[in-house]
Computed example of a mutant assay.
Amino acid sequence: MLQIGWIRKLYPMYGYSLLLIIACLAACSNPDVKTIPQKIDYIRAISGKNDSIPVAIAQKGEVLIAYSDCYTCHKENRKSIGPAFKDIAKRYPVQRVFIDMLAQKVISGGKGAWGSATMSDHPKVPIEDAKVMVSYILSLK
Rank of each mutant, 00 (worst) to 15 (best):
M1E: 07
M1I: 09
L2C: 01
Q3C: 08
I4Q: 10
I4P: 01
G5Y: 05
R8H: 11
R8S: 05
L10M: 12
L10E: 10
Y11W: 15
P12A: 10
P12R: 07
P12F: 06
P12T: 07
M13R: 13
M13A: 15
M13F: 13
Y14M: 12
Y14R: 12
Y16G: 10
Y16A: 08
S17Y: 08
L18Q: 14
L19R: 03
I22G: 09
I22F: 09
A23D: 00
C24E: 02
C24R: 04
L25G: 14
A26L: 12
A26G: 10
A27Q: 04
A27H: 02
S29R: 14
S29F: 15
N30C: 04
N30H: 07
V33M: 07
Q38M: 15
Q38W: 09
I40E: 08
D41S: 09
I43T: 10
A45W: 00
A45S: 13
A45D: 03
K49L: 13
K49W: 11
K49Q: 14
I53N: 01
A56F: 06
Q59K: 13
Q59T: 14
G61L: 04
G61M: 06
E62G: 10
E62I: 05
V63T: 13
T72H: 10
T72I: 09
C73E: 03
C73T: 02
H74G: 00
E76S: 11
N77P: 00
N77E: 13
R78P: 00
I81V: 15
I81K: 14
I81P: 01
G82R: 02
P83H: 09
P83G: 03
P83M: 05
F85S: 02
K86E: 08
D87K: 02
K90A: 12
K90M: 13
Y92W: 05
P93R: 12
Q95P: 03
R96T: 12
F98E: 01
I99K: 00
L102I: 10
L102D: 00
A103C: 10
V106S: 00
I107N: 04
I107G: 01
S108P: 00
G110R: 06
G110Y: 03
K111R: 15
K111P: 01
G112D: 06
G115T: 07
S116Y: 09
S116T: 11
M119R: 04
S120A: 11
S120F: 05
D121H: 12
D121S: 14
D121M: 10
H122T: 03
H122Q: 10
H122M: 04
P123F: 05
K124T: 11
V125L: 08
P126C: 03
P126F: 03
I127G: 08
I127H: 08
I127A: 11
E128Q: 11
E128P: 01
E128K: 12
K131R: 15
V134M: 11
V134A: 08
V134K: 04
S135Y: 03
L138E: 01
L140N: 06
K141V: 02
